Computed example of a mutant assay.
Amino acid sequence: MELGMRRMQAFFPASLEIQEELLKAGFRVPYDRESGRRTPVPVVVGSREERRIRRSRLLKAKDFESDGKSAMLPGERTSLDMELTERGFLVLRPKPIEYHLEEMGFVSVPPRVWGTWASFSLPFSAYDELVDFLGDFRNDNGNGFYTASRGSGGRIEVYAYKGRSRKDLGIPVFGYALGLHGLTLAEEYLREKAKENGVPKERLRYLRLGLRKRRETKAGLKVGLVWENGRPAEITLKLSTTEPRVRIQGLYGELVGKSRGELARTDEWYIVVHAGDFITALEAVGRAFGDKSY
């Protein structure tokens, strides 16, 4: 089953592994104080709605309008393919068909210490279709799940977690792969930055800019609903990792953060969870505020 997404974001700046790979290749990541050259690791973003961002944050886009200070990006197309296996696993395959690259804006907490580093959003209209698709895997004993919510103004986000021990993770993730390989805009961006940093272009073919789950990686998928003004608006999926911790030597000292996985050359994007966990989590957040008025 394939569904159109409202929005997707893969925060590759959260990966110290990718930053170290670029540093070893000779890139000055993310900022060289002496020359003033900036080589930020890109965030891959796709949004169905038009978006306006600061022009300085836009690293690469296929089509946009700009007044010099801001950039207006047209609606983009992304999709999420869902595949069931004979052993009861659900394979989620995000597809960034149309997307752009952004620089991470200033945040008070460095991305390397975040839990969540990739997020995907589906319209709430897909809820019933998802429930029907996964109905055979429903687990009537959902006592091991709980929900937590947060809100601001007319917007409330509620997420499901499998057991208290999985705080901030969601449901177990058994495998994943996401990366910058195979993305035309990312390849163009890196070629430009290689020239700017004096990195031989031949070196680009050996870079490993994809991430796969390692055996010791503690990973989870938060399944949630966003409510706006009293009505469910979208289904959100957030990929998180919390352990182990990694250390790298940055340009100006040692950096410590959460591991995002094992470096790999992959242009395949996927996340693997148990189908029973996914539908139980989805229905748990669907019941969070009683009957859904839609």
Rank of each mutant, 00 (worst) to 15 (best):
residue 135 G to F: 01
residue 209 L to E: 06
residue 38 R to D: 06
residue 30 P to C: 13
residue 260 R to F: 12
residue 182 G to S: 11
residue 273 V to M: 13
residue 4 G to T: 13
residue 147 T to D: 04
residue 110 P to C: 11
residue 139 N to T: 09
residue 50 E to W: 14
residue 257 G to E: 10
residue 53 I to H: 00
residue 285 V to D: 01
residue 116 T to L: 04
residue 5 M to C: 07
residue 133 F to A: 15
residue 150 R to D: 08
residue 51 R to H: 08
residue 257 G to L: 04
residue 250 G to R: 07
residue 224 G to M: 11
residue 190 L to P: 05
residue 229 N to K: 13
residue 87 R to G: 03
residue 40 P to H: 10
residue 87 R to S: 09
residue 29 V to G: 09
residue 130 L to C: 05
residue 31 Y to V: 09
residue 20 E to C: 05
residue 253 G to V: 06
residue 206 Y to H: 14
residue 239 L to R: 03
residue 221 L to V: 12
residue 84 L to T: 03
residue 3 L to W: 13
residue 147 T to N: 06
residue 241 T to E: 06
residue 199 V to S: 02
residue 146 Y to T: 00
residue 242 T to N: 07
residue 270 Y to V: 01
residue 61 A to Q: 05
residue 111 P to Q: 09
residue 179 G to K: 11
residue 233 A to K: 15
residue 161 Y to T: 13
residue 168 D to I: 00
residue 219 A to E: 05
residue 136 D to S: 14
residue 81 D to L: 10
residue 216 E to C: 05
residue 156 I to K: 04
residue 83 E to F: 08
residue 91 V to N: 03
residue 37 R to P: 01
residue 239 L to P: 04
residue 226 V to L: 12
residue 16 L to I: 04
residue 111 P to F: 02
residue 185 L to Q: 11
residue 41 V to G: 01
residue 125 S to I: 14
residue 99 Y to K: 01
residue 184 T to R: 15
residue 138 R to M: 14
residue 104 M to W: 12
residue 216 E to N: 13
residue 21 E to G: 08
residue 110 P to A: 10
residue 13 P to R: 07
residue 147 T to W: 10
residue 152 S to P: 01
residue 248 I to N: 08
residue 111 P to C: 08
